[in-house]
């Protein structure tokens, strides 16, 4: 366990990092520590939360329409991925990635992220599938008129080799229909059975990759939920 003085120092450093007064080599050293120090990441998160109300007092100001026009243009399919795409944020704590480090790494990961995205989807309902830590494991989106789901891995559950998470959809009679395997990374489209609606419930089971069941899950359900309209 960390001595109290050391704990206090690292907490204050985290506060200075969020405040912005930690600069130069101290900031670089701090960010290097932050990369692997989960406790420090939690302290940075906590400071962001503590300071958040500071921004509440600022009066809203409507930006000119041209700002949105520019943004809309930049996210059109086919536009190059700019330096703003920071896959660097994919680690446990996003806050630490708000600094100015590892620009080349940021660009490389950002480009990877962009290439895995499928452009131009429009969703009218969304479901967050929780992982074994009760955090966002996958995002599932659907459009009522489309016959498929769009599934994106966020923080998927770590499974033993040979095991996978299988997504099921429940019909009105309580029967489960296999929809697909939740991806371990990137995005994936999954076709929906013709008779099914996006109003049905979804369930997830953990299965053996080589013995995927088709009628019903072979193990207990680890998650269930419904799509929610946006």
């Amino acid at each position: 366990m960390m001595p109290e003085n050391e704990q206090q120092d690292s907490n204050t450093l985290a506060g200075e990092y969020v405040l912005g007064t930690l600069q130069g080599q101290d900031r670089i050293d701090f960010e290097q520590r932050l990369d692997s120090d989960v406790q420090l990441q939690g302290e940075v998160d906590a400071w962001h939360q503590r300071f958040a109300p500071m921004l509440d007092g600022i009066e809203p100001v409507t930006p000119p329409n041209a700002v949105w026009d520019q943004i809309a243009h930049r996210i059109e399919p086919g536009q190059p991925a700019h330096e703003e795409s920071t896959g660097f944020w994919n680690s446990l704590s996003f806050w630490r990635n708000l600094g100015m480090v590892a620009a080349t790494l940021v660009l490389a990961l950002g480009m990877t992220l962009m290439t895995t995205r499928q452009q131009g989807m429009e969703m009218d309902s969304i479901m967050v599938v929780l992982n074994d830590q009760y955090r966002t494991g996958w995002l599932v989106g659907a459009h009522a008129s489309e016959g498929f789901l769009n599934v994106k891995a966020v923080e998927p559950t770590e499974l033993p080799k040979g095991k996978v998470c299988q997504l099921w959809m429940e019909d009105e009679r309580g029967h489960l229909h296999p929809i697909g395997l939740l991806p371990h990374n990137g995005s994936q489209q999954m076709d929906l059975p013709n008779s099914m609606s996006t109003r049905n419930r979804f369930k997830v089971s953990v299965e053996l990759m080589d013995l995927l069941p088709k009628d019903k899950p072979s193990s207990e359900i680890v998650f269930e939920g419904k799509l929610t309209e946006i």
């Binding site: 499928q118 429009e122 969703m123 995002l139």
Partner: peptide, 30 residues
């Protein structure tokens, strides 16, 4: 906003437009 961010993660530009309309005045003020 959470649902809209989730839809944005799935590349839904319409959801992003809605997210922008709900938050841009606040963030522009900041």
């Amino acid at each position: 906003l959470e649902r809209l961010l989730a839809a944005c993660a799935l590349s839904d530009r319409k959801a992003f437009a809605r997210l922008y309309s709900m938050t841009s005045a606040k963030l522009y003020g900041v």
